[in-house]
Amino acid sequence: MTTQSDTPVPTITLGQGPNEAYEPYEAESMAHMTWRHFKRHRMAVIGLIVVTILAIASIIGPEISPYDVYHSNFSERYQPPSLRHPMGTDDLGRDMLTRIMQGGRISLSIGVMAMSLALLIGTSVGALAGFYGGILDNLLMRFTDLMLSLPQLFVLILMTLLLRSINIPLLQAGGGVFAIVFVIALLSWMTVARLVRSAFLSLREKEFVEAARALGVSNRRIIIRHILPNSLSPVIVAGTLRVASSIITESGLSFLGFGVQPPTPTWGNMLKNAQDEMMRGNMWMAIFPGLMIFITVIAINYIGDGLRDALDPHIVR
């Protein structure tokens, strides 16, 4: 230590006297610790800010915009971006910025709803399979394998065609938003189920579960209150990334014409005729909606990246 004489020697503060009151030890909460680590991931923080701004703009934007989302105005068709219309107008003379903000509401909601439903299905399947094991595990996992063997995009399209034909008001509302949510969730819960199952398999043998059992806690309560909270980390990361991939899936389906139907705007269906418009020189119609998808997805993916680093107990910081 002689070579580092300029380094202050740390003073020992513990156990200085018998009368000294110790600070009661308080465990740092999981959320607090995660946030502390998350803050160090610069891109993730930027991503979070971007997503927040997009969400706020989508929520209040259409309300304060002077233009209507649906009302066409033929004297204002194909206006390139200007001060009056920052993102131009479309083939029916509707303000693109207003429609993009409304589309953001729909696209972001679809992402969040599809993720929630996929997590719900995936967590239930994974928890049941991992906790009970045996025949139930075998059946559920074979079913998961089956779902993973389906050609995803093709089956997605068939299912949207199917749901479009069923006459249930909820499925048809708003151009079929809920139908899309349902279809995307139904084909994307499998990875979550596998993650949760493997977490349950290792956790159910742990001492704290045994202790809970010895206390006579019911299986249901052990699953929900004891094991599930301890297996959430991978689920949170997978869920975050699932929001982004759901937005991409929705926009892809809508772009092909199988997704949410106009006049309800989503970032995907605003691009539906973009290829033809682009050939006619109306570039802005193709640029902005896609740019919004790109920005949103990359921001969410960075958040997922940051969460993965923050939640991973194996990374030493």
Binding site: A244, A274, Q275
Partner: peptide
């Protein structure tokens, strides 16, 4: 992160 169809456009 880029939507592949938009990249094509």
């Amino acid at each position: 992160s880029i939507p592949i169809f938009w990249f094509g456009l």
